[in-house]
Write a protein that binds this DNA or RNA. Structure first.
Lengths: 135, 135
DNA sequence: CCGTATCCCTCGGGATACTG
DNA sequence: CAGTATCCCGAGGGATACGG
């Protein structure tokens, strides 16, 4: 299977679920928060900011299930739990950070495009009409 | 603003929306389908496969609004419309493809992790318990 | 401290039918 | 061909309360 197979529909369908996992509301935030090292549940909650207890739990379970995050329980009283990225989780960090850098670099352009689109409505911006049907 | 600012909460919050745009159910599929060149509406629909007419329209509008895709109308009868990636859309393709390669490379590991997790339940896999509270 | 359980509401998104 | 309009359902996710 060559690298150029990526654009084949069948290939796209296989990677799409992964993209959506990463693209869900909280996963990347949690993964990036764990990028600097292990964190306990409530530390993580504060770091991410805005996430509900329920969603942090669900997100962590999902990431743990997929092998991105490891969970370590210290059976003390009160109990302590620390989360940390697995090797695979850390390797995920690289392409995700690349996308992050891209996003940061192009955010102004995106917002500008939105304003053009919303202001002048569909019809300006990158929208065009060809009087000639030839390409 | 340095590169290391990526892990700062405020920075993450800014890139998260972009990640979610890309991570929605159809956007990447459409962007990747357009990676090879411009396509007309129904060509695109067939290429992506499984997308409803409604969702293709909505996805394209979103991508157009954000400046990823340009729409060109040929006022013939019946009308023809072709979609193609803008320069920014093409530049997005790079980090997305990087993530795609990562996904393909690690998909087996992810699926294996899932089976461990689902079979033996939470408790095996990367789950651990520390009898000593020290780290 | 670290969750699980429940309620509830919004939004994504599929199916279908209709227009220029 | 390339959409728009309508209906409708299930998943996503917040708020809150409770348990070990």
């Amino acid at each position: 299977m060559s690298d150029s197979d990526i654009h084949v529909p069948a290939e796209c369908r296989r990677i799409a679920p992964v993209l959506q996992r990463i693209g869900d509301k909280w996963s990347i935030l949690v993964v990036m928060a764990l990028g600097d090292g292990s964190l306990r549940f409530n530390e993580l909650k504060r770091r991410v900011g805005g996430i509900s207890q329920r969603m942090l739990t669900l997100t962590l379970r999902g990431l743990e299930r997929d092998g991105f995050v490891s969970r370590t329980l210290f059976p003390t009283v009160p109990p302590a739990v620390s989360y940390e990225l697995t090797p695979m989780g850390r390797s995920l960090l690289e392409p995700v950070r690349a996308l992050g850098l891209w996003a940061r670099e192009h955010l102004p352009a995106i917002e500008a495009a939105r304003q053009r689109f919303d202001a002048h409505g569909p019809g300006t911006g990158w929208e065009r009409t060809r009087r000639d049907a030839a390409e």
